[in-house]
Design a binder for these strands. Structure first.
Length: 428
DNA sequence: TCTGGGGTCCTAGGACCC
DNA sequence: TCTGGGGTCCTAGGACCC
């Protein structure tokens, strides 16, 4: 098996750092960046994190604390952040073309092929970090490991332990040291473990990353599903998640906003929906795409207990796929009129453009068809693997549709196992 | 004894991410 | 009083067809 080496490069406190590049006097000043309507904190400086302010905390809840500690608050400027993000990626591309832009402030680099230019992975990491700082003014941390999930973990360690100067390489670490670090980090820090799963893990007595490492991936598969199974393999150093160099085409475009004030009338809602359609349609044309159906949704403020709640959405199919604002607006209005109810105070409205997939329309399902299309080898392998893992002839046949692959159990309870075709674990 | 069974598409909802 | 916006993937189950 070929072994990989991934580096995750992540800008520290991205939005805050962007603001600081253009206003150096903000360096070391406690500050936050706020979301739309100045509702939530979406970025916190290190000083504010140290005060215990969590990501996403509503601004009104920390206003007093902010006053006491002289915390400055900035409204967000996404144009600026997008521009800075591009600059960082340009610098990273100097190191390798094998790069995945994972989010506005994070990129994965596959670095095995370029390691020969460096004394060790840490050397590469430090070089990356320093060059990004020199060329963009932004501070980054680098996590290096044989899988993406472990690289995430390494990045987390790099951020928490300044003595490493922002670079943490797990690939050359001894097993004992790695396990020691894993016992010191809570399992909810793992990439892919959110609130709900963390809670269930807690109940099972799994508290640290190391605890999770002790459970076999097959067992976790039965309890939690295929995503968790992959995660467990990744923690063990078995790479299941590939580098996604070319970002797949979007499946949907969303435009939505909360209202500054609650609104009650159809007219107010229709005005905002029209605005959202205009923004979404612009994005749509920008990527030369068309939509075959749009979703319109409206909702009241779920935080207001005791207030009558209403949330509804509707899918409006379009007779012909289009990117035309007028047609889309007309469709959206007809949808809105169907879901609008008077007597409620609305907080949010939005639209979703459902993009047409360029995947083949249905491939008739049976296995022989796949054989003809030359897709059976991989499928057979997968079936074998599943049968081996579950210790019996669980799988009878398999098929593939537009979005999913599924397999039939030999006991005819079907479909027992469906999964996104491209997302099957690729290594064991 | 067992009320048809297999195949496909679609939607809703849950979970996660930044 | 005041609680973001934009995405992805996976699964279960209903509708429908023959």
């Amino acid at each position: 098996m070929s072994s990989h080496l991934f580096a995750l490069v992540d800008v520290n406190n991205f939005y805050v750092s962007c603001e600081r590049v253009f206003a150096p006097k903000l360096e070391n000043v406690p500050m936050v960046v706020l979301s739309n309507n100045d509702g939530c904190t979406v970025a916190r400086s290190a000083e504010v994190k140290a005060l215990g302010v969590k990501m996403g905390t509503p601004w009104f809840q920390i206003k007093d604390l902010a006053k006491t500690h002289g915390v400055l608050a900035y409204s967000s400027n996404y144009t600026l952040y997008g521009d800075m993000s591009n600059r960082v990626v340009e610098v990273l591309r100097q190191f390798t073309p094998n790069l995945e832009v994972y989010s506005i402030d994070e990129s994965f680099l596959q670095i095995d092929a370029v390691m020969k230019h460096y004394t060790d992975p840490t050397h590469l990491g430090l070089t990356v970090k320093n060059r990004v700082k020199d060329w963009t003014g932004l501070p980054v941390c680098v996590g290096i490991a044989p899988t993406k999930t472990l690289a995430k973990f390494a990045n987390h360690l790099a951020k928490k332990h300044p003595q490493w100067q922002g670079v943490c390489d797990l690939s050359t670490m001894t097993k004992q040291d790695l396990h020691q670090w894993m016992t010191e980090v809570s399992v909810d820090e793992v990439w892919g473990v959110g609130q709900k799963i963390a809670k269930r893990l807690q109940l099972m007595g799994i508290k640290t990353v190391f605890d999770l490492l002790q459970i076999s991936p097959q067992v976790m598969r039965l309890q939690f599903g295929v995503v968790m199974e992959r995660l467990c393999y990744e923690l063990r150093g078995v790479s299941c998640l590939k580098l996604e160099e070319v970002s797949p085409p979007k499946q949907q475009i969303i435009a939505s906003r909360s209202f500054g004030k609650l609104v009650t009338s159809f007219n107010e809602l229709s005005e905002s929906v029209a605005t959202h359609i205009a923004r979404a349609a612009e994005k749509l044309r920008l990527q030369n795409s068309v939509t075959g159906a749009i979703t319109v949704f409206i909702q009241t403020n779920g935080f207001m207990r005791g207030e009558p709640q209403y949330a509804q959405s509707i899918v409006v199919p379009l007779p012909d796929p289009t990117d035309d604002s007028l047609e889309l607006t007309a469709a959206a209005m007809s949808g809105l009129s169907k879901i609008f109810r008077g007597g409620f105070r609305y907080k949010k409205a939005g639209v979703v453009l459902n993009l047409l997939s360029d995947k083949p329309v249905v491939q008739q399902s049976l296995f022989e068809d796949m054989e003809a299309k030359g897709q059976s080898a991989e499928l057979m392998k997968t079936i074998d693997e599943i049968n081996t893992r579950f210790g019996s002839n669980l799988i009878k046949s398999a098929a593939m549709g537009t979005k999913q692959a599924w397999v039939m159990r030999s006991d005819n309870r079907s479909p027992s196992y469906t999964t996104n075709w491209n997302q099957l674990p690729i290594a064991y």
